[in-house]
Design a protein around this nucleic acid. Structure first.
Lengths: 196, 196
DNA sequence: TACTCGATGTATCGCGCCGATACAACGGTT
DNA sequence: AACCGTTGTATCGGCGCGATACATCGAGTA
C-alpha cells in the first residue's frame, strides 16, 4: 500500500472537483484549508512532478487552439486525475488510520468529509480526539514536574497551550455528538474498509 | 546584523542558564516550549555544529577526569555560550522586530520574557497582536468570498480556525493590559534598542 | 554472575518543504 | 505607449524531520 503524504492527498482532493493549474491549486489550498495557508511553489511544483511521475495525475498542456494555429504558445498546464489517482483518492477516503490524526493531515481530511461515509468520519474524529488526549496528558505532566523551576511567563505559555488543546477536544466532542445523532450526508458505505 | 533563526535563539536562551548536552537540550526545549514539542536530533546536532562554526557556542568534551586517568572515555559534549554568543543573545533580547511575531518565534521569545525589559515585552506583544489581526482579516475575507461554494465541513473548519485566532488575540490583549498596568519584573532599560 | 532493558548520549542520511528569486505574458488603466 | 497587478511556471540553497545506527550506563532480575 503506497504511502500518500498530506500534500499529495490535498491535491488529489482539489483535482477531483475539476482540473486546475498549479497557480490556481495554490490559491485554493491556501484559502480553503487552515493548513497550507501559504503553501510555496517550491513545494507545489515538485509535488506535481512527483505525482505525474507516479501516474496519479496527468498534465494537459494548453488545449485552447481553436483558431489561427500555433501563434501565442502560452505555457499553462492543467492537471487532472488519472484513473490511478481516482483509485488512490477513493482508497484514502475510505481509510481512517493514524495518518489522519495529526494537525495538518486532520484538517485536509476533515475538509473532504463530504466525500466520506459517516462511519469513517466518526472514526477519524475519535482518532483525532484520542491523539489530542495523549498530548494533553504529556503536556500537563511535564507542567507539574517543572512547575517550580519555571518563571511566570513560561508557565503562562504552557497554561495557554494546554487550554488551546482542551478547547480543541471540546470542539471534537461536539462534532462527534452531532455525527452520532445525525449520521446524514454521504452514506456510500465503507467499501473495502480498514486501511492504515 | 547577522540573522538569528528561531532554533538558534532558543538554544542560546537555554545555554544562558547553564551548559548542557545535546540530549538534555532536546528534552528541555521539548517540555518548556509549545514549539519544539518534538525537536529531532536531525535538526539539533547540525544546528549545534553550525553554532560552534560561527563561534556562538563552544563544545567542552567530557571534563570529569578526577581519578584513575583516562579510563572510560565517554563521549559526551557539554555546550556553553561564548562571549560572542552572550552578545548575540543580548542583542536579540533587546529587539522586538517582526521576526518575533510568527507562531514559533513568538513562543520562544515569550518564554524568555523574564530576561527582557518591560518596554520590549510590550512591543513584542503588540507586534504579535497586529500580525494576528492581519491574519484575521485575510481569513474572514476569503471566508465571505467563498461562503456559497464550500460544503458545510469546510465552512466549519474555517469558522473554527477563525475562532482560534480570535481567542489568541484576546489572550494577547489580556497580557498587554497586565504589562501596561504592572510593568514589573526586569527593568534593565532597553540598551542600544531598535533592532530588526 | 550474567542478562536484559530502559534511559542517556552522539551522529548521519534521504527526502520534502520553505523563502527567495527569476522569467514571461496577459489585461486593464492613465 | 508605458505601467502595473495578476496569472503562470520553475529552480536553488538551506534546513527541519523521521528513521536509523551505534555505544554506554544503571538497575532489576533470572
Amino acid at each position: 500500500m503506497a504511502k500518500t503524504d498530506v500534500l499529495t492527498l490535498a491535491i488529489l482532493g482539489m483535482l477531483s472537483e475539476q482540473p486546475l493549474h498549479g497557480y490556481q491549486l495554490r490559491k485554493q489550498l491556501g484559502s480553503e484549508l487552515g493548513a497550507f495557508r501559504a503553501l510555496s511553489y517550491g513545494s507545489l511544483y515538485p509535488a506535481l512532478k512527483r505525482m505525474v511521475g507516479s501516474g496519479l495525475i496527468a498534465a494537459d498542456a494548453n488545449e485552447a487552439e481553436d483558431a489561427h494555429a500555433a501563434s501565442s504558445r502560452r505555457s499553462r498546464i492543467a492537471y487532472r486525475l488519472t484513473d490511478a489517482g481516482k483509485a488512490r483518492l477513493a482508497d484514502e477516503l475510505a481509510s481512517a488510520g493514524a495518518s489522519s490524526w495529526d494537525d495538518d493531515a486532520f484538517d485536509v481530511r476533515f475538509s473532504m468529509f463530504d466525500k466520506t461515509d459517516s462511519a469513517t468520519r466518526l472514526r477519524i474524529l475519535e482518532g483525532r480526539r484520542s491523539r489530542l488526549a495523549e498530548r494533553l496528558e504529556e503536556v500537563s505532566e511535564s507542567m507539574q514536574q517543572r512547575r517550580e523551576r519555571n518563571d511566570a511567563y513560561t508557565t503562562e505559555l504552557q497554561r495557554h497551550g494546554l487550554e488551546r488543546v482542551e478547547r480543541e477536544v471540546q470542539w471534537l466532542d461536539q462534532l462527534i455528538e452531532t455525527e452520532r445523532s445525525a449520521p446524514g450526508g454521504n452514506t456510500k458505505a465503507a467499501t473495502g474498509g480498514e486501511n492504515n
